[in-house]
Nucleic acid binder design. Sequence first.
DNA 1: TGAGACATGTAATCGGTTACATGATTCC
DNA 2: GGAATCATGTAACCGATTACATGTCTCA
Lengths: 183, 183
Amino acid sequence: MFHNRKPSALSLAILGIISLEPVSGYDIRKIFCTTPMGHFSTSPGAIYPALKRLKENSLIKGQIVKKNSLRPKQIYALTHKGLETLKEMLVQPVTHQDIIWRLEEMILQFTFIGNLLGREQSLRFLNELAFCIEEYVPTLQENINIQRKLKNINGAFAVEQGLAKYRTTARWARRVIRELENE
Amino acid sequence: MFHNRKPSALSLAILGIISLEPVSGYDIRKIFCTTPMGHFSTSPGAIYPALKRLKENSLIKGQIVKKNSLRPKQIYALTHKGLETLKEMLVQPVTHQDIIWRLEEMILQFTFIGNLLGREQSLRFLNELAFCIEEYVPTLQENINIQRKLKNINGAFAVEQGLAKYRTTARWARRVIRELENE
DNA sequence: TGAGACATGTAATCGGTTACATGATTCC
DNA sequence: GGAATCATGTAACCGATTACATGTCTCA
């Protein structure tokens, strides 16, 4: 895992949550159920197997609270390897592909960058994000024109929605950059 | 399929594309590769199996072009059942859950509503979408306050991004409603 | 002492990703 | 006749969903 393939968004979210403070599987599920992070699944059938995989790959370790119980409760913490892996993931440059296919995951990454890597990396990340989006916007604009020429009215409207969302995200990034710089 | 479970977003996209005009699998893939609809996979390993399933469920039928060939080329069209199924999916009311978990899919649906069901249904859909989003916004706002209280600075910023995106989508919907009404 | 929240998990199924394989057509 | 593009598919793998199962603690 993570050597040969990208982690799922859910695994990343779990690693990030655990990096803030050690928690149990149930705690993680509660966070997913009560915050927008729940966007990446709230199902125990996804969360517990994901924890199992992370543990098998030595990215997290579980401390068993109630011993001698048929229902062992575990508190998970990052291992050294887990922390390094997470940090390495968070310093990766933002790519064109990322903003097309994984924008939500990028925002998730930003959440953890502040805590683990500090302001400078947050700024680096936001600048790259804004740059990639601004680079992508003309492509969408062109696509709107194509849809209009094809008389695909709703299609053109739909792409406009995508465009508006990207613009909003770029503006958000620029605003947060200013706020972080003025601290 | 579709009797007992929701179709995947990819299946819906394929049905919608075919509803516009009969096309081959390759044509579909080209559309995915060259438009933002590609958000729902561009991989032949997803598209061809999806076509196969749709065909097995009699939602589409394929007309074989080159007969007696080892590589039969097929042009797919909706069956009566397929058209009815698609229409039925598109008249479903927009729910709270939809805008949290499937917003992109909702926009995709809007693309096809105009062609298949006309202006009135487009307006119905957009009104429901805007209403659900506006209902959801306060929840996000509250979550931002919670994150701030927890001193989770980047977390608060991240939720702000989600909020801004929802607001943008609601404004987009309201704007498109006005444009459709003034036609 | 029973209800409900806390807490952890498994099994069946399904669909997407990646990588691979292969045939058909076009054009130089 | 070779390269590129058109065109259709399969196989291994993986992770998410749904539904189910079960144990534990708290408090009225």
